[in-house]
Design a protein around this nucleic acid. Structure first.
Length: 563
RNA sequence: UGGGGCGUGGCCAAGCGGUAAGGCACGGGUCUUUGGCACCCGCAUUCGAAGGUUCGAAUCCUUCCGCCCCAGCCA
């Protein structure tokens, strides 16, 4: 990806894999898999899993399969299938021809179920869902065996075949494993293997009316594909004994090992599909790809790069401890990446008109501006300068506090790549609000340096009024006001998570900026052109602000920012 | 209090019996035509707690405390 392969920091999983490779387990082969269920959009938490699985594979010269865990037609939709594949590709991973589905294995899974029945290890239970729940027992008391638990093999075989043939209605019966109703691990109390669902499946159509449960499908799918390390999140740890039980009691072709790690939590955001779905359904955000969403679609639209997401996932580490990563860490990753790549440009979000009184009317000069100080190869561009300009309203204070060293009456500052200007007058409206600044410029300071060595404390961004282009700029901030939104997250929504600037003034070089392109608006932050943008109505999203030391000073000094 | 898992600075995270890496955040400074970037300095006598073993413990043993997960015909 970037010439020199940076060595990934080791973690407990890569240590296990390294030992297996060294000991020759699986013949030194490494095959992982990313197994999403197509019932929602992928989010940054999935990115951690994707990077882990594909990363491990490439680190040890192995491969990573892509597999849809499509065992529940009631919840899965084709819309999600497309978005999921698109997101994984965008993140930068490729599964070549290795696209699989749990549904590819329905026939084999069915045959194995028949084997389990013949071995007396599975039975058809005619208890209702409620009855099964009631007899499962509790955390402290054992469950009760189903009265159907000892049906004869022949009867079970007959019943199960009839289940498949559609002779029963939904819920009338299920196939259950015959393990141990007294197990302290609830997953082992005769878990359901198959349930009847008379609905068509996005891939198998109406071929099946019985569908395998996750536990029954996952491990065997892994075994069928020859997966060596099946990595999942901590909540499946209790399922591992069952995962292993199937592998021990079925004649599977290989023996995968399940390893669990802690899922990612991010401060100031919610990650569960249920909560994200609610934000979408209740219109708290514009959709799954709203730039405030932690979905990959949202993050992408926000302007994050796949490289920054990968770097983030590599840095947060992999462990078994529940943790919440600071959102600032994610922001650090995108700033770090964009600092090196994003072309610099000037744009004024909250325009304050400036008239340079001693600058010739009608004159336009084109000044050289460096595109990216971090990347000389990015070259220079020319920006127009004229008598009337816009500067940021926040860059002027009529009565500045001691630490404010931007523009104020009588103060001289530099306009980036242009001239030193001195504020000579302030024009106010009848409400007393500053509506225009009158300034003079020093023609000897063209380009931004004074031949007499005169120094100036501040450098301001600006844009020439007659040359500026208008744009809508969407300023995004955290979606929630609290680091841990919790279950009442709907009450913790940040009312200022989106502020729309209707008419920002941008330098004309942005005229043709294509959707998706990213820029640094100097002194403000990183922005990207939104997909809603059109030539007649340009729309930019703020990906993240620049680090703002001045904002911290203001906060510390109790100075309120100018509105 | 059935079972499983986890507890190292504000947030992540190395460490695996030899005397607490690194990153983010934070504070201070240098530099600066972005109050950006870069660079420098600071930031746990202490590893959930208490005992014990040992010349020596975050690492081994006890006990205790705290947090998370499991009672879907969801994944």
């Amino acid at each position: 990806m970037n010439g020199v392969e940076t060595k990934l920091p080791p973690n407990f999983i890569s240590t296990i894999v390294a030992e297996d490779v060294k000991s020759g387990k699986h013949g030194g082969r490494v095959l992982t898999r990313f197994p999403p269920e197509p019932n929602g959009y992928l989010h940054i938490g999935h990115a951690k899993s994707i990077c882990l699985n594909f990363g491990l594979a490439s680190e040890f010269g192995g491969l990573c399969n892509f597999r849809f865990d499509d065992t529940n037609p009631g919840k899965e939709e084709i819309e999600y299938v497309d978005s999921i594949m698109n997101d994984v590709r965008w993140l930068g991973f490729d599964w070549d021809e290795r696209l699989f589905h749990a549904s590819d294995y329905f026939e084999q899974l069915y045959k194995w179920a028949l084997d389990l029945i013949r071995d007396g290890k599975a039975f058809v239970d005619s208890l209702s869902a409620d009855e099964i729940r009631e007899t499962r027992g509790t955390l402290t008391e054992p469950g009760k065996e189903s009265p159907y638990r000892n049906r004869a093999v022949a009867e079970n075989l007959d019943l199960f075949q009839k289940m498949r043939a559609g002779e029963f209605e939904d819920g009338q019966c299920v196939l259950r494993a015959r393990i141990d109703m007294a197990s302290p691990n609830l997953n082992l109390r005769d878990p359901v293997l198959y349930r009847i669902r008379k609905m068509s499946h996005w891939r198998t159509g109406d071929k099946w009316c019985i569908y395998p449960m996750y536990d029954y499908a996952h491990g065997q799918s892994d075994a069928l594909e020859g997966i060596t390390h099946s990595i999942c999140t901590m909540e499946y740890e209790d399922h591992r004994p069952l995962y292993d039980w199937f592998l021990d009691n079925i004649n599977v072709p290989s023996r995968p090992r399940q390893i669990e790690f802690a899922r990612l939590n991010l401060s100031y955001t919610v990650m569960s599909k249920r909560k994200l779905l609610r934000l979408v359904r209740e219109r708290k955000v514009a959709g799954w790809d709203d730039p405030r969403m932690p979905t990959l679609a949202g993050i992408r639209r926000r302007g994050y790069t796949p490289e920054s997401i990968r770097a983030f996932c590599e840095r947060i580490g992999v462990g078994k401890k529940e943790s919440t990563v600071d959102l600032a860490f994610l922001e650090y990753s995108i700033r770090e990446d964009l600092n090196l790549k994003a072309p610099r440009v000037m744009g004024v979000l909250n325009p304050l008109k400036v008239v340079i009184e001693n600058y010739p009317e009608g004159q336009t000069e084109y000044l050289d501006a460096i595109n990216n100080p971090e990347d000389p190869s990015a070259g220079v561009r020319q920006v127009p300068f004229s008598r009337e300009l816009y500067v940021e309203r926040e860059d002027f204070m009529e009565d500045p506090p001691k630490k404010f060293y931007r523009l104020s009456p009588g103060r001289e500052v530099r306009l980036r790549y242009a001239y030193f200007i001195t504020c000579t007058g302030v024009v106010k409206n009848d409400k007393g609000e500053v509506v225009e600044l009158r300034c003079t410029y020093d023609s000897a300071t063209k380009g931004g340096d004074s031949p007499d060595g005169r120094k100036v404390k501040a450098t301001l961004h600006w844009v020439s009024a007659p040359h500026a282009i208008d744009a809508e700029v969407r300023l995004y901030d955290k979606l929630f006001t609290e680091p841990e939104p919790g279950d009442d997250f709907m009450e913790k929504l940040n009312p200022k998570s989106l502020e729309v600037v209707e008419a920002a003034k941008l330098e004309p070089s942005l005229e043709e900026a294509p959707p998706g392109s990213r820029y640094q608006f100097e002194r403000l932050g990183y922005f990207c052109v939104d997909q809603d943008s059109t030539p007649s109505r340009r729309v930019f999203n703020r990906t993240v602000t620049l680090r703002d030391t001045w904002a911290k000073v203001m906060k510390a000094e109790g100075i309120s920012p100018v509105k």
